[in-house]
Design a binder for these strands. Sequence first.
RNA 1: GCCGAUGUAGCUCAAAGGUAGAGCAACUGACUUGUAAUCAGUAGGUUGCGAGUUCGAUUCUCGCCAUCGGCUCCA
Length: 644
Amino acid sequence: MSAEITVTVNGHPRTVPAGIRVREALDAAAGRDVIAARVNGKLVDMNRTLDADATLEPVAADSPDGLDIIRHSTAHLMAQAVQSLYPGTQVTIGPTIEDGFFYDFAPPRPFTVDDLPKIEQKMRELAKADLKVERVEVPRAEAAETFARMGERYKVEIIDGIPEERVSIYRQGDWMDLCRGPHVPSTRYIRAFKLTGVAGAYWRGDERNAMLSRIYGTAFATKEALEEHLKLIELARTRDHRKLGRELDLFLFDPISPGSPFFLPKGAIIYNELIDYMRRLYRRYGFDEVITPQVFRNDLWRTSGHWDNFRDNMFLTTDQEGDGRIDASPDGWRHGYAFKPMNCPGHTFVYRAEKRSYRDLPLRIADFGRLHRAERSGALHGLTRVRTMAQDDAHVFCAPEQVAAEIDLNLKMVRDVYEALGFERLESKLATMPEKHLGTVELWRETAAALGQALDRNGLPWVENPGEGAFYGPKIEIYVPDALKRKWQLATIQLDYNMPERFDLTYTSNAGVESRPVMIHRAILGSLERFIGVLLEHTGGVLPFWLAPEQARVLSLSEKVEAYAAEIAATLKAKGFRVHADLRNEKLGFKVREAELAKVPYMIVVGEREAATREVSLRLRGARNETMPFERLISLLGDERVPS
RNA sequence: GCCGAUGUAGCUCAAAGGUAGAGCAACUGACUUGUAAUCAGUAGGUUGCGAGUUCGAUUCUCGCCAUCGGCUCCA
């Protein structure tokens, strides 16, 4: 090793002694807000030493890398505070997540929100103490021994899973943690943080394991950035679809049927408009709609595989495990039925309505049937996780050689719909074979590969979602975030070679050979319920004209113009618009305010001036008003009747 | 299902071991109104449900149900 090395900082080479610390190597570039460095592309601590030529870039506290380091260090600080306040608490893992971090603990008793202020206070003390954060490397066995002596069983388990022979440990004051790093140079660099919540979480995410106690928090480079983030979250809460649903009279929930929305008249309009929209697309894309039963004999579910793979999520008509045939008991005829959780098995009977040939394929069968799923109580969440729903479901029965084209067709539909509805960023995943599955491993590998190629062909970037496929086949999943950035799966395209086999579906090929069709399961909106939930959060309840439950409201200024206002409302209603007249004995300001809060797109104000000239004063939601002839208003509204 | 929290009028929230109060909404009346709240009055609650402790529970304890934040699971 030579005594001198060359470091290149921000493109400027410099000769320095070997063994120099990163901080000194950065020299002038090491400003007050620099907390780490990228050395040859890898993030390292300021206190690491350099023994060979290297390229360095400073990492500022407010850069994405810097924030990640700060949050990770804040998680450590929190763990230190927790262990000093609650002796006997073991640490487990504490990663950074989007906008923050968490740390999972195994405490003598679970934490509650009341513990958080105390922990925050301790963290502030530790930060102020300016404890140096030091990195040491030790052999793996030694680390395991150290943590075992400390009674940290979880850390030992983590160390046992690390393949490297040496592991790094970070110390700050009298506290230490196994960690890859890097971290801030000292605790004083942690100045803007907040603990945001507590939650239970299973060790390693497996419900068979112990329940740990998780504390969530967030941290930023400055107090201002933290404040701004907290304010944004507050704002996002006002877009919660559950709140909007109540405020806008769209739907309600009642313990009488948990997880099952009652769509009120206004909510039902949105629901039905979305269905109408999909029906128009179906005509364009060649789908035929069917209507199928709600309840089926268990025989169906046994054949489809739902009985073995999905029964825990199904509502059964009785607790008898019968097959739907009459048994000896007085109510025997009712036994052995279940509500459908999916449409697919029923659709095989539509396929089998006729002897099929290659000329019938692809056969595209759509169904808005209501589904029921016995979701676990803790999983329910407004409209986005319900026990009864309708999907814009369809099953494509096609020949194997038609699969690629059919997937492309449906991906194109996905792009059409989400573009029309204003969703710009879609995230795609490819879900592969789950533990509970039908069919062979090779078949799963092939079909998953086909879906991956389809995503590539259609220019949709994707990541794998291992083990998350449906039990009958791999899935393309399209995710859209809600107001709080929680991601929900909406569209899905699933490839299925198993269901046709189980129901022995066939078609006659053009060579006259009995052949097996392939089934593609797909939904574009996903479920109407979840889609409406996410749509409300995206728009804050400000829906496009064609979806707005109330499209226009006529506001009369006084009793003198009641007749004219009523006439306008009646004319627009006759033309098919959803219009109401507000003829109440109230001031205009009051009526405008109510219409604004109800998020009515068009407010049509009429007073004596307008009545005299057969005009209207149009106020667009949240915008200025303009006076125009009534006739012009009619054509204006007509232009917005359907989505572009 | 699991961990933690919450549950008071239609909605948003107060109060309190001696059977509850406000604002908005609803209803009635006055005001006849020009682009985000006119005024006055009336009515509305077995304090989620069920037990227990207590002279007395809506308040304390336990169980159940639901909801909220997560975990698990999923469209």
